[in-house]
Design a protein around this nucleic acid. Sequence first.
DNA 1: CTGAAAGCGCTTACAG
DNA 2: CTGAAAGCGCTTACAG
Lengths: 333, 333
Amino acid sequence: MSTIKDVAARARVSIKTVSSVINHEPGVSEGTRRNVEAAIRDLDYAPNVSAQRLKRGRSELLALVLPLVQSPYATKLFANILAESHRHHYSLVVLDPHAPGTPSSELEQIVRNHRIDGAILAPPGADYARLIAFLKKNHVLYAAIAPNNPDEHYFTVDITDRAGGFEAAQYLIDLGHTRIAHITCLSTEYFSQERLTGYREAMEQAGLPMMICEGSNTIESGFAAAMSLFQQDTPPTAIFAGNDEMAVGTILAALHMGRHVPGDLSVIGFDDILISQQIRPRLTTIVQPIQEVARMVIETLLGLIECNTGEVNHIVIPTRLVVRDSCVAPKLK
Amino acid sequence: MSTIKDVAARARVSIKTVSSVINHEPGVSEGTRRNVEAAIRDLDYAPNVSAQRLKRGRSELLALVLPLVQSPYATKLFANILAESHRHHYSLVVLDPHAPGTPSSELEQIVRNHRIDGAILAPPGADYARLIAFLKKNHVLYAAIAPNNPDEHYFTVDITDRAGGFEAAQYLIDLGHTRIAHITCLSTEYFSQERLTGYREAMEQAGLPMMICEGSNTIESGFAAAMSLFQQDTPPTAIFAGNDEMAVGTILAALHMGRHVPGDLSVIGFDDILISQQIRPRLTTIVQPIQEVARMVIETLLGLIECNTGEVNHIVIPTRLVVRDSCVAPKLK
DNA sequence: CTGAAAGCGCTTACAG
DNA sequence: CTGAAAGCGCTTACAG
């Protein structure tokens, strides 16, 4: 592998000049630049990142703390954050606090050894007290995505969970449903409470009775919750599931009981994971704009790192309803 | 941040001694080691990875080429490879050849700038001709996971797709089914052909008629394929789906048509993704031992990198049947 | 607009 | 068992 010296020798200039060309510094004459670029091509030269990092004292490296629980949400978030990082020429180190055999002290070692410039805490990572304390102590800038305790962080990115919950319920109300149940996500999660509150507000405003059943985010918990809902004296004609996985479970349960979706039961979800478009009927849901979340997180974090752009506080990205095939007006009886 | 010099000064030894302690070199007296370790703790010292890499000329960095299409398989593979890499104290750079706005030349830049020690090509990455040529040209060692053209690579890790396909079909045959259909994965994929061949062999051996329908790996394609199968004059009593997503689609289609699973239709899948355990009925399937695949890939690749362990060729990991709730004997008629 | 020199934080022969 | 010195491949003031 050739070095900057080789390039300088071949182009008959000093290494400073080569460096200037590589880093697109202004003030290099056109001819010299051409000359250097030719030498770089000829020698198939690529700057050594380790040397650059060492000298610059900056790693252009971000840590993404993401429990790889294989949830579609986490997967989608990861893909988007990776793309955004690369777009800004930053590398990404993924840290999985749930990985077997990797104690948190080891994760901390990685952050320190690599001289990480900044970190992104993805749910539920945003609430690992130990990690947060560690980052603060080491003056590593970080962004928290959808944390449970927003006020603990000076920079968070969140979505409009409450408004989304309201919109989901309101959509079913507008279709004419009066018996609308809500299957909540894990009640310990802040976003779960927010979505529930949105549902509550819509139902109260419409003067409709609430039917609330607690789930735990998985397909199977949605299945179980829906089954229990069907056993009630006056079962719901529509169900708002706190996330798409549980909506899938709900559809499965309905079909299992011989109920047609959406004919006998309307189902609406939240998140818009990949499955939602693939399942039949295709799921009507509240879109969580993960791509935008990823963009905001990275751009704001890099702004902070590179320019120390004052206070940022809390960024909120709006959700929106996407209508597909799983909801219709209730049958008259 | 303190440096090795600071530690040496505080411990009143030379930096060479500190280095020896950090790298667990033999031949440091017990007392000196204790002394140095205390200084490291006191100063909260962490070695600078960039400096180490620069000096050693090795990056201890692996590239994982993985299209983040958000398939459960890809997600699971990623989680396992990440964990394995960290276990061996290697970092991982994830390259997504499908990422929007990231031309392949940029991926190649990353590999070269970081002086990657080795690469892992995950499906369908194992067949990117341009990338392969690039890696070979730059003498970057790499492992191909389940490639379409095994012979092009000198080191591959694969699973027993054919035996797995055979086992799936044989299991249904043993239950007493005689009308067993197979929904294939994308026929352009080598593993898809292998699974199909396994099915063929089992059916031929049993003297049973084959029913083959082509799918394209997704839930929706499984749904569509199953629907078309149900329309046949003598519809199948059991379906072997080429992967679990299509098995989910099959179950959805069966329920949609008012057929009970497994009562009216037995369904078996392939892969054992997370959903398979969560769906109701829980899916009987052929387990693809991803954790073992990840372990073999990393260990063999690192062996190659660190010791240049001769020829490796093709490693094959066995699949196995896991019986859950989606298959029973056919009804007598 | 270009060059010579110092130094980032380590590791690695080489002495002793 | 420990130390002094060179150097990995860059960037960055500083001259000119």
